[in-house]
Design a protein around this nucleic acid. Structure first.
Lengths: 321, 321
DNA sequence: AATGTGAATCGAAAATTTCGATAGGTTAAC
DNA sequence: GTTAACCTATCGAAATTTTCGATTCACATT
C-alpha cells in the first residue's frame, strides 16, 4: 500500500487552527468548551494523519513545526470553503447564477414565457432559461433531467411528480374580420360547416376541441392542416377560413383577426410539473412561484393528486417595465 | 443562533461522491466494503448537514438534487485538496520552493555559505536562504523562529536544541609575505611581541585564542582593533602588523598574505543548531545534511549532548560545477 | 530543591458508527 | 393482478470512537 489516506473531520481541523492561533492546547480546549485531554487526543489523531509532530514543546509553551504552519494555512482555506458550502443557501435572485430547463411547446412559449422572461431580466438576470420542445415527451425529459420544469396541457398519473395548476384555457374561433361569421355568436352548426385550418401540432397530438367534437359525433370541415398556430392570422386574412385556437394564442394576433367564442366547449388545463430533484432548490422554488403568479390566480400545488403543497406566493413586482 | 455549523468527515464526503457517481447506495456500500445501512446512515448525516434530500427516489434508482450536484462538485475539490495536503511530503530538491533562515556571522558566511549556495543553485534553486547576523543572539533567534538553523562557535547547554558538529577550526597568524616572522615557525614569545590587528567582532565577543593567551598570562601587543576580519589582507600588506584569524578565513586571502601556525593552540568547534520545530521537515533535514557534508567529515548529530541522531548523509554531487 | 505550568496518558463513561435483519416502496415480469 | 426483484429506510445490538476527570510527566522558573 502506497499510503493510507487518513480520515479527519472538519472539527479536528478547526481545533488545529485554534491551537495554532492560541499557541496552547489548554486555551483551545477552554475556548471550545472541551477538556484539555480531548484536544490532546484530537492532536494525536492529527499527528497520525499528517505524520508530523505539528507542535513541539519550547520552554513554556509550544511552537508549530514548519509543516504545521503549512497545514494550518491550507486547512484554513478548506474550512472556509466547507463552511461556505454548508451554509444555508440564501437565494438572492439578483445575484444568483444558474440555468433552469423548461420543457414546453409553442403554446406556453407564446403565452407564459414572455412574461417570465421580462421578470427574470429585471429581477434575476443571472438565471438562464433553457427551453426545449416537450412535444409529447415532456415527462421523460423531466425524469431524465433534461429539463427541470414541464409546462403544458399534460396529464401525469404516476406518482413522483409534483404538479401545480396554472390556469384553464378555452378555445376561440378566429377569422378574417370581414367574415360573416364574425358578426354574431357562432352556433355549432355553422362552426362544423365552416372551412377550417386545423392545427395538428405534429406528433399526432389532437386538440382537445377536436376530441370533444368527435365524441359528440361531428367532424370539422378541414380545409387545411398546419403544424403550428404561429402566424395563423397571415393565413386567414382575406379568406373564408376559420381556425380554432386557444384564447391566449388568439390574443397574440389581436387587431388583425376577429375572434368569437368556440361553440364546442373544451377546457384545457395548463399545469406545471416538476420532480423531487428540484423540489427543494431555492431558485427552482422561486421560479415556479413566479410562473404560477404570472400565470394567474388559480395557484394550487398538488403532488400525486393528493398532498397539497402550496408554494410561497411570489410577490409580483409592482414596478413598471 | 444563526446556523449550526455542521461537522462532517472527509470519508462522508467521499461516500457522497461515490454515491453520486454510482447512482446507488448499495453499490457504493459494496465498493467501500460497508453495509448498505451504513451508507444510508452516512447519507442521513449529510442530509442533515446540508439540509437537503441530496438524492430522491426516481423509479428504479435515485437522482441527485440540483443542490446535491453542486455539493458534489465542491466536495470533490475539497477532497482533492485535502488528499494532497495529507499526502506524505516527498521532498524533491529540484522543485521545492521555500525559504530557510540561517543565523550566523561573518566567519560562517565566508567559509560555509558560499559552498552551500553553489549546491543550492544547482540542485535546489527553489530554496531561498535568509541569512541573518547571529551576533550573540543566535539561540534566541532560533527559539523565536527568526531562523531555522544556527551556525557558529556557539555553546548551548540547555535542552531542546539539536546540535551537529561541523568541524574544528584553529588559528593561523597572517602577515605581509616580506615580514621576517613569515620565514619560520612562529614561537610564542615573538607572537606575543608582534604588533597585532585584533578582531573584536563587535558585541564584546573575544576570540578564543585571546582567552587562551590571557589564561596563560599573556597580553597581545594590540596595535589596532577592527570589528571584522574582512579585507584584513588590505590592512596588513606593506606593514609589520600581524593578525590572528581562523585558518579558513586566512585561506580566503590566499596568495596575498603569508600565514604561519599560531603558537597559541585554541580550537574552535563550529556547530550547527536547530530545534524540534524543523527537525522533521524534509527540506530542513536535507539542507542540514548538505551543510554537514559540505563542511567536512566529522558529521555527528547530538541532541542535548545525549541522544545521537545521525542524519541522512547527503550524497555530495560529483557532477562538476 | 520546590513550585508552577502545560501537555500526555489512563481508565471509565458517553456518544457515535457499524452491522445484520427487516420493513416499505417502486419497477418489471409472469 | 400477483409475484419477484431491487432499492433505500429503519431498528436494535454490537463495536468503535470520542470525551472526561484524574493523574503523570516534562520542563522552566523561583
Amino acid at each position: 500500500m502506497p499510503f493510507e489516506l487518513p480520515n479527519l473531520d472538519f472539527a479536528s481541523l478547526r481545533t488545529l487552527r485554534l491551537v495554532h492561533e492560541l499557541g496552547s492546547f489548554s486555551r483551545a480546549a477552554e475556548t471550545l468548551g472541551l477538556a484539555q485531554s480531548t484536544v490532546s487526543y484530537t492532536l494525536a489523531r492529527l499527528r497520525e494523519a499528517f505524520d508530523d509532530p505539528l507542535f513541539v514543546r519550547q520552554g513554556q509553551g509550544i511552537v508549530p513545526t514548519t509543516r504545521c504552519s503549512e497545514i494550518v494555512a491550507q486547512a484554513g482555506e478548506l474550512l472556509d470553503r466547507f463552511e461556505e458550502l454548508a451554509a444555508p443557501r440564501d437565494f438572492e435572485p439578483a445575484v444568483a447564477s444558474l440555468e433552469i430547463g423548461i420543457s414546453c411547446n409553442y403554446y406556453e412559449r407564446v403565452t407564459i414565457l414572455p412574461q417570465i422572461v421580462r421578470v427574470l431580466r429585471c429581477e434575476a438576470p443571472g438565471i438562464r432559461l433553457k427551453v426545449i420542445s416537450s412535444t409529447v415527451q415532456g415527462k421523460g425529459q423531466l425524469t431524465r433531467s433534461q429539463s427541470d420544469i414541464l409546462l403544458g396541457a399534460v396529464q401525469i398519473q404516476e406518482a413522483g411528480y409534483f404538479r401545480r395548476s396554472l390556469f384553464k384555457e378555452d378555445y376561440v374561433c378566429i377569422m378574417d374580420p370581414q367574415n360573416p361569421l364574425a358578426q354574431a355568436p357562432l352556433d355549432l352548426e355553422s362552426f362544423v360547416r365552416a372551412p377550417q385550418v386545423i392545427v395538428n401540432y405534429g406528433d399526432g397530438y389532437r386538440a382537445r376541441f377536436l376530441v370533444e367534437m368527435e365524441t359528440a359525433g361531428y367532424q370539422p370541415n378541414t380545409a387545411m392542416e398546419v403544424p403550428s398556430p404561429a402566424s395563423m392570422d397571415r393565413i386567414l386574412l382575406g379568406t373564408d377560413l376559420i381556425a380554432t385556437v386557444p384564447r391566449r394564442i388568439a390574443q397574440t394576433y389581436q387587431g388583425d383577426v376577429a375572434s368569437v367564442a368556440c361553440p364546442v366547449s373544451a377546457e384545457i388545463p395548463i399545469d406545471m410539473f416538476w420532480t423531487a430533484r428540484t423540489h427543494s432548490s431555492a431558485p427552482h422554488v422561486w421560479l415556479r412561484s413566479l410562473i404560477a403568479t404570472v400565470s394567474g390566480r388559480e395557484a394550487e400545488s398538488l403532488q400525486d393528486a393528493r398532498s397539497s403543497d402550496t408554494e410561497d406566493t411570489h410577490a409580483f413586482p409592482d414596478q413598471s417595465f
